[in-house]
Design a protein around this nucleic acid. Structure first.
Lengths: 212, 212, 212, 212
DNA sequence: GATGAATGAGCCTTCATTCAT
DNA sequence: AATGAATGAAGGCTCATTCAT
C-alpha cells in the first residue's frame, strides 16, 4: 500500500521512516502525531513522506501492518506449536518473549495499543486480522488440550477462548507494565518474578479450564 | 471544576450539555470532537460551552467524571455486597445491569472506552480513581471468598485479582458487543444467552480460583 | 454621553464604575480592557455597564472626559495665575501637585497616558481638548512673561511654547516615574529631591527662553 | 528570533513581509492588527507567516527590532560625531534626515510610536535598548560641549540630558507632524521652514544649557 | 433597574497536504 | 527522488453585546 517509491528505498531508510512513524503514533496517538516530527526523526524531508505514502492514514496503517508482520515472522519462526498443550505454551518460549520485550519495547508497546483498541476504528482492520490470527492459534491450543484430555468438555470453544484470552491478556499487560517499570532492562530477579507470574497464571488457567 | 455558571444551570440543560459532550467524545474521540457539534447537539451556543467550562479538556474530564459518578451512584444503591461470595456477585444483579445497558448504552460505551484506555492520558486520573474503587471492591469480594473458604489459598490476592479482572473484563466486553449487536434491545432469548454466558464465566472463575 | 441611567446613579456607584474603568483601561489599554473586569471591580453586574453606557468605547471616552474634568476642577480652584510669571508658576503649587500625585496616582497616570497618545485615535478628541486648554494656559504664562520683560523677544510664541512644553513634559514624566518608584509615598527627602528637579528645570527654562 | 525559514527567504519577500507587518501594526496597533491583513499585503499565505514567526507577538517584536536596526545602520553611517558640538549636531545632517522622513515615512512613524510608548510593554525591551543607545549618544554630545566649554557647569549631566531630550523630542514631533501635513512631499519652502524650526530650537538649547 | 446567562462574529494558530525547485 | 517552503481549511477560544428574568 505504500507507493512504489517507498519500496525502492534502501532498507535502512525504510526502517528509519517506519520506526519514526511508529514511535510518533505510539507516543501521541494518531491525531496528535505530526508528520513533521516523523520526518525529522527519520531524518527525511517532510515532503518525502508524501512520496512514500498517500497520506497520514496510510502511513499509520502501514505502521500497524509492518509491526504485526514483524511479530508474525517471529512467531512463525519460534513456534512449532504442533501439539503443544495449552498450559505448556507460555512457559516454553517465555525467555525469548522477555528478550523481545527488551529489544523491541516500542513495537511491543505499539502492538499492545493496537490490540487494546487505542487507535479506534483506524486500526480496526489490522486489529481484526491480528485477532483472527491469534484466535486461530489459540483455538488450536485448545483443540490440542481437548485431544489430550486436559481441557474440560462441558464448555464450548468460544467460552473457553474468552476465558483464555481474558486471563492471558491481563497477565500480559501486567508483564508489560512491569517491564516498563524497570525500563526494559530486566535483572535475573525480574525474570524470576515474571516467570512466577506466568506459573501462577498457568495454574489458574489449568484449574479453570482444565478437567477438574 | 466546571465554572459556577454551569452549576447554576437547570438540570435539564446541564444534562443536555454533558450528554452531548459524551456522545461527541465517544463517537469521535477527544481530538476529533468538535465543540461546535457539542453545542449544536445540546442546543446551546458555542460560546456558552466556554461559560461552563474553561476549555475542551475540562469539558472532557467533567464528562468522564460525570459518567463515572453516574455509575457509582447506581452501584452504591444496588450493591449491599456485605459478605456476598465472589461467585454469586455476578448473577445477583445481572438483570439490572442488562437493563442499564439497554437504557444507557451511551454511558456504558463511554465508560468502557474510558476504562480500556481509549482516551489515553487524558482520562488517566479518572481511570485511576475508577480502577482503585473497582479494585477495592473486588478485593473485598475475594476476601469474602477466603473467609467462606471458597477461594484457593495457594495464591496471593494480587494474582487472584489479575485473574478475576482478566476474566470478568473479557466477558463484560463480550456482553457489551452482544448488546450493541442487537441494538440495545434485548429479547428474552438474548437475556437467556447472556445469563448463560455469565454462568459459564462463573463456572470458570470458580474452578480457576476456587478451592480445588 | 453616558445614558441617563448612569446619571441617576448615586455618586458612590458612579465613581466606583468610572474608577474601575479607568483602572482597567490604564492597566491594560483599550483593547485588552475587559468589560467584565471593570464590572467586577466596580461590584456591578456586567449587564449594568451597558445600561450606563452604549458600549466600551463610550465608557472609555467618558473615563477620559471624567479624568480631565477632575483635573480641570482642581486647576481652576488652585490657580489664580493672574499675572504669575512663567518661571514662578512651577514652584508656586509644587507641594499641592505632589500631594495630588500621592492621592490620585491612578488618575495622574491615566491622564499622562492620554496626553502622550498611548490610546491613539480613541482619546484624540479629548487629547485635543486637553492640549488646547493647556496651551491656552501656557500661552498666558508666556504672555505674562513678555509683559514683565522676562521672556526673549526674538522668538515667536509658537516656538517658545514648543520649548516650554518639551521641557516641562519631560520633567513631569521624570517626576511621575520617581513618584512611582517610591510607590506614591514620598518622604521629606523625596520632596526635596523633586523640588530640586523643578528648580533646575526652571533655571533651564529661564536661561533658555529668558531675555539674553 | 524569526524561524530559520524566514531567514532563508529571499530579501525581497522578507522585506515585503515585515513592511506589511509594520504597516499594519503602525496603522492599527498590536491588538487590532490582523495577521490575515499582513499576509495579504505581503502577498503571502496566512499560514506562511507562521512558518516565519512563532506568533503575532514575535512578528511584532521583530518588526520593532528591524525598524530600529534600520535606523541604527543609517545613523552609524551618517554620524561620525567625533567631537561635534551639541549645538551643531542638529543642523549638520538635517537635510539627510528630512530626506529620510520623505523616503521612509512608515518606518519613521512606526519608530516614533515605539519610542513614545504607544505599544506599551510589548515594545518595552526594544524601547529600552533604543533609549540606552540614544542616551549614550546624547551624553557624548554633552561631554563634547563640556570639553569645549559651551555647556553650563552648574547642572549635572542627568538634568541636562532631561532638558536636551525634552526639547529635541518636542521639536522632532513637531517636525514629524509637519511632514505628515504635507504628505511627505516637502517643497523648498517647507525645508526652509523646518530648518528655521531647528535653528530656533538650537538657539533655545544653547541659551538654556549654555554657559550664559 | 439589576443581573448574569446567552450569543456568535472574529481571529489566531495548527498542520496535513501540495508545489516548485 | 528529495527537499522544504507555501497553502488554506478548520477549529478552539475570547469577549463585546444582547436578552430574559
Amino acid at each position: 500500500m505504500p507507493k512504489r517509491t517507498f519500496n525502492r528505498l534502501d532498507d535502512d531508510k525504510k526502517e528509519r521512516v517506519i520506526r519514526a512513524a511508529i514511535e510518533e503514533f505510539q507516543a501521541r496517538g494518531f491525531e496528535n502525531a505530526k508528520i513533521e516530527a516523523i520526518a525529522r526523526n527519520a531524518e527525511v524531508a517532510k515532503g518525502s513522506i508524501y512520496q512514500y505514502f498517500d497520506d497520514k492514514k496510510e502511513l499509520f496503517i502501514y505502521s500497524v501492518t509492518w509491526t504485526l508482520e514483524y511479530f508474525m515472522k517471529i512467531i512463525d519462526r519460534q513456534t512449532p506449536l504442533q501439539d503443544m498443550d495449552v498450559y505448556d505454551y507460555f512457559l516454553s518460549g517465555s525467555r525469548e518473549r522477555f528478550e523481545l520485550l527488551k529489544q523491541e519495547p516500542l513495537l511491543v508497546a505499539f502492538s499492545m495499543d493496537i490490540y487494546t483498541g487505542k487507535f479506534g476504528s483506524l486500526a480496526l482492520e489490522a486489529t481484526r486480522e491480528l485477532s483472527r490470527i491469534g484466535e486461530e492459534y489459540e483455538l488450536k491450543l485448545i483443540a490440542n488440550g481437548r485431544r489430550k484430555g486436559t481441557v474440560r468438555e462441558d464448555l464450548d470453544d468460544k467460552t473457553l477462548l474468552l476465558f483464555f484470552q481474558g486471563v492471558t491478556e491481563k497477565f500480559d499487560t501486567e508483564i508489560m507494565e512491569k517491564v516498563k517499570s524497570f525500563d526494559y532492562n530486566p535483572t535475573e530477579e525480574h525474570y524470576r518474578e515474571m516467570e512466577n507470574l506466568l506459573k501462577n497464571m498457568i495454574s489458574l488457567l489449568k484449574q479453570g479450564m482444565g478437567r477438574n
